[in-house]
């Protein structure tokens, strides 16, 4: 007798996942959407309105911050990829046995401490009275203390550092599965390092590259701690705007609209990334 594939056990196993999806992902977002689409018309009464979205487009501070966050996130993703790729290639293809595991572990170590502590680590290094400034003064390269915090470069450093692991892991996994003899065959047929990289290694690593980029982009876009701490007051990160609306201004409607816009942006970027690289979502996330 053929039993149904979707028996009781299947549903029992699926239940926690479904609960999680519905309660923590779906419901809040539906609620967020509903809140963002209403306008207070009197005490305790609301009506449907696109006012908060219109607000976003008419107030330059809002959409400029939004754009800036998107561009900085893209840049951070790109930088992370550029730094992580050679690193992952080195670990996956050049190292063998114990040395490989050790290097892989070394990549993980910074993530044993919380993001807050890690970010404070950067602050200790970069602030006016910090380690780097001290070293520069000691070596005589600068006369006065140097402030390296509270600028875009500091934000970028922190973002790339925070995101690195999420790029390195999928890259190592895909590069590990690349057969060495493909690279050797390329050399044997007259190829050199550069065109092998583009014609053999990158196409093979594409699912890892795309999945790493998607994760890093989403994490960076939604990061609050790093831009605020390293960028200071004028970091102009969009999550800060959301925070301000919800907590400082108590304008939940505006904050919700911003949240929905951020969600739309990250969905759009994921879709674009998949389209441009010709990958499918299941293929990429299966890595």
């Amino acid at each position: 007798m053929k039993r149904s594939q979707f028996g009781l056990g299947f549903w029992l196993l699926l239940a926690p996942l479904l609960l999680w999806l519905v309660l923590l992902i779906l419901l809040p977002h539906v609620d967020l959407l509903l809140i963002s689409l209403r306008l207070r018309s009197g005490p305790g009464t609301y009506r449907f309105s696109l006012h908060h979205y219109a607000e976003f487009f008419t107030e330059p501070l809002y959409w400029r911050t939004f754009l800036r966050t998107a561009i900085m996130s893209l840049l951070a993703t790109l930088l992370t990829l550029l730094i992580a790729f050679p690193l992952a290639y080195y670990i996956a293809k050049m190292m063998r046995g114990r040395a490989k595991q050790l290097l892989f572990l070394l990549c993980l170590i910074p993530f044993w401490v919380s993001e807050l502590v890690r970010t404070y680590g950067w602050m200790i290094l970069l602030r006016e009275s910090g380690v780097v400034s001290g070293l520069l003064q000691w070596s005589g390269l600068t006369g006065a203390p140097l402030e390296m915090l509270y600028n875009d470069a500091a934000i970028m450093v922190g973002l790339v550092y925070t995101a690195m692991l999420f790029m390195v892991v999928p890259l190592i996994t895909t590069l590990d599965s690349l057969d060495d003899s493909l690279i050797e065959a390329g050399y044997d047929l007259g190829g050199n390092g550069w065109n092998l990289l583009w014609e053999v290694v990158v196409p093979h690593a594409m699912p890892g590259i795309v999945s790493g980029c998607i994760v890093v982009f989403m994490l960076t876009l939604g990061n609050y701690l790093t831009p605020t701490l390293l960028g200071g007051k004028d970091s102009l990160w969009f999550t800060e705007q959301i925070y301000t609306q919800f907590i400082t201004r108590f304008n939940w409607e505006q904050g919700s609209a911003f949240g929905i816009l951020l969600l739309l942006l990250s969905s759009l970027m994921v879709w674009l990334g998949l389209r441009l690289s010709g990958q499918s979502f299941t293929q990429v996330m299966g890595r």
């Binding site: 057969d179 003899s181 050797e184 065959a185 050399y187 044997d188 014609e199 093979h204």
Partner: peptide, 21 residues
């Protein structure tokens, strides 16, 4: 002389055809 400059070519044990081409 590097492999890509030798007048020999090699057929690999598991062929090593480029799957993306």
């Amino acid at each position: 002389v590097a492999p890509n400059r030798r007048p020999v070519n090699m057929v690999f044990q598991h062929l090593a055809l480029f799957p993306n081409m």
